[in-house]
Design a protein around this nucleic acid. Structure first.
Lengths: 352, 352
DNA sequence: TTGAAAGCGCTAACAC
DNA sequence: GTGTTAGCGCTTTCAA
């Protein structure tokens, strides 16, 4: 029991006394460690059950592990991240590890990827002795990530960079963006605009998923001979970012016939702006997203989107993390997953 | 540094040696405790900065606090919960506390409110020495909650029950449900169905938000002389729950003219099912939700919903928690917030 | 005001 | 196979 009153919490000493064995024995049984006779194990197990003993993770953490895995999410509102979390917790469900989620302490309206806030959360997780961490699209630089990964097993999701210190799971974002552009040009679109997330740091630009999607968009446009039509608005991967970006685009004298939003959550804002402008989707303008979140599939939405199998990505990350926690020095793994385009009802031939 | 190699982590001993003071002094400075001269404070502060010292939360937790607050969410997919989390983190932003979020390890498709999984998470938080916890719509029984709250400061959000051990912040769910029914009957609806979350435990039924909304719906229907039209389908507060519930309702020989979903996330599933059935909203059928999440306001959705100010609720909870952590023995507070109906475009007069 | 020393609950060496 | 003994990095009495 912490500061509260109540009865003192059962400790390993109580269990040892109750079972008339040493605390070492209890500790070993708890950890399924080597060197306990079946008889001893049984007595200890019984005592544990009888007293309702649960070890304190903090105390364990002082010497061994805390059995806690930290997951850093850039933004809890983006419906794509729960998919990843599901994959992680699903993989860890039968293990002794507990997942704790941390997000930047940002209010709504602020852009995702607040680097300072993220730094605090990562530090906080390290300070709390997490046995391992999954960092989803972290904004930190390579150097900082390597630093963190040097101290605790880390798997990074979404950053396009290899590191010897941590494992990486990433979607082929350039390919995903190309899928969208190919699809839209195939329908006859030429003026295809893209809304992405502003990337303040030039250094890490090449490795952030948003930046790679934008690059994929540019390259694909060029490949279709549409270099002159390239049109990127940078706001943020939030609903509001999509709303503001679309407002901006719709005010153009020659407005785009299609908007490719860098994330489904962005597309949501786009749809709102489009509706407010009195335009109909896809009759007047086509809209596509990225992530294929559950909201994209909603009846009244039916958003064309790029599927990147968040659950699978999360599960892969968890698997790699477990391996790395077991063998800290192992060589790092780099997994790339392939995106798929899911065509729904927000994309069609452009207005005549 | 945990298991990893790398340089040993800076400890309080290093700082003390570097500043040529005792570890006690460093500890006091870290905690802004009473009894340090300005000169001493300055030297210690300098040493801390120079060495980049950050205390290990686990070690602090052995004697004092961990500076960590646990937030239990029943479901990370429901877009209402980020509002609450924003309120909590917003209030705690400038404090020394860090927020860690835990959710049941459920895969998609399972209903929310998995009691066993929730139990594990709450235990895990207690075991990890959380200084305080905010439990959002926990499924646990009164007894269990009091037990937990006896050991660590707790604020419960969403349960309709007073407890001497923990504070409570709750929306007037019965009133919210009545607002919807009043609105729909005012439009001329009589066959108003409700989709709620199955409540397996009779004991706690009266106190769960879903159950109270259902009761509010029933009472309001009766008040309008529509007792015979009461029609409740129990699935879960998930998108899939809404989808299945609506499928079921739409198969009725005499189908309802309006569906009141117990949560926005449920309404999302309803909208999908309605669209699949080839029906138009609100022309053929009206739909209303609860929570007024950001998705309700989306252009293509425009869902009529009950606003319960999640951000405010979260902020209130955080405020109460901070007070309780400062004074464990204080009398408990019970806050009820008043819901508001936000009418959008999914509700209209019933078909002739 | 300052610091020495005793733990917090657990795990890891090391004896037996 | 079992128990004894040191700590892990902090906070907290309690003397000085």
């Amino acid at each position: 029991m912490e500061p509260g009153s109540g009865p003192r919490r059962v400790t390993i000493v109580d269990v040892a006394a109750h079972a008339r064995v040493s605390t070492t024995a209890v500790s070993k049984v708890m950890r399924n460690a080597y060197g306990v006779s079946p008889a001893m194990r049984e007595r200890v197990t019984a005592a544990i059950a009888e007293l309702g003993y649960r070890p304190r993770a903090a105390a364990r953490g002082m010497r061994g592990r805390t059995y806690t895995i930290g997951v850093l999410l850039p933004d809890i509102r983006n419906p794509f991240f729960p998919d990843i979390v599901d994959g992680i917790t699903g993989h860890l469900h039968d293990s002794e590890y507990q997942v704790m989620i941390g997000t930047g302490g940002r209010g709504p309206g602020d852009g995702a990827g607040d680097a300072e806030s993220e730094l605090r959360v990562v530090d906080a997780m390290v300070d709390r002795g997490m046995d391992g961490m999954v960092l989803v699209a972290p904004a930190a630089g390579q150097k900082r990530l390597d630093e963190v990964a040097g101290g605790v097993p880390v798997v990074v999701i979404g950053r396009h960079m290899r590191s010897a210190r941590h494992d990486t799971v990433v979607d082929d974002d350039a390919r995903g963006a190309a899928l969208v552009v190919d699809h839209l040009t195939g329908l006859g679109h030429r003026r295809i605009a893209h809304i992405d997330q502003r990337e303040p740091d030039r250094g890490r630009a090449e490795t952030m998923p948003n930046a790679v999607r934008t690059r994929g968009y540019r390259d694909a446009m060029r490949a279709h001979g549409l270099e002159a039509e390239i049109d990127v608005v940078s706001t943020g991967y939030t609903e509001d970012g999509g709303y503001r970006g679309a407002k901006w685009l719709l005010e153009r004298t020659i407005r785009p016939t299609a908007i490719f939003a860098g994330a489904d959550i962005v597309a949501m804002g786009v749809l709102t702006a489009v509706a407010e402008a009195g335009l109909r989707v896809p009759h007047d303008i086509s809209v596509a997203g990225y992530d294929n979140t559950s909201f994209a599939a909603l009846g009244p939405i039916g958003l064309t989107s790029v599927d990147q199998a968040g659950r699978q990505i999360g599960a892969d990350a968890a698997r790699l993390l477990v391996q790395r926690m077991a063998d800290t020095g192992r060589a790092s793994t780099f997994i790339t997953t392939s995106p798929n385009l899911v065509v729904r009802r927000t994309t069609a031939t452009p207005p005549a």
